[in-house]
């Protein structure tokens, strides 16, 4: 998992360097968002498959799933709450960025 973290970080930095140096053709640059969206939807489709293909998960999906769902809602909810609490300490310079 350390290697996968390094791998992901490496490919991101590689893309970052290419983007930073502006070595992309304008044609490809205009399609960046579309490519990202297609990749993302493909990954989510595959993620769906990993759930659907696993009979054990599907047959217990309602009992385990309900519990898991409740936990995930609280996990997300408290993450939002805690970030909301520390938000005022983080200087966001939105106007400067947008200008």
């Amino acid at each position: 998992m350390v290697t996968s973290l390094l791998k992901y970080l490496g490919i991101l930095i590689l893309g970052g360097i290419i983007g930073f140096k502006g070595k992309l053709s304008p044609k490809l640059e205009g399609k960046l968002n579309t490519i990202q969206t297609v990749c993302l939807l493909f990954l989510l489709f595959i993620m769906g498959i990993t759930i659907g293909i696993n009979d054990e998960i599907i047959s217990n999906i309602f009992s385990i799933g309900l519990k898991a769902g409740i936990i995930s809602v609280f996990t997300v909810g408290f993450s939002i709450l805690f970030v909301h609490l520390v938000k005022k300490f983080i200087p966001m310079e939105e106007k400067e960025i947008e200008s």
Partner: peptide, 22 residues
């Protein structure tokens, strides 16, 4: 599936990286 996810994620991250680098 593991390999497919890995490849998809690498392609995605590469383009996200370009986006951030810009």
């Amino acid at each position: 599936i593991g390999l497919i996810i890995d490849i998809g994620l690498m392609v995605l991250l590469f383009f996200v990286g370009i986006d951030i680098g810009k």
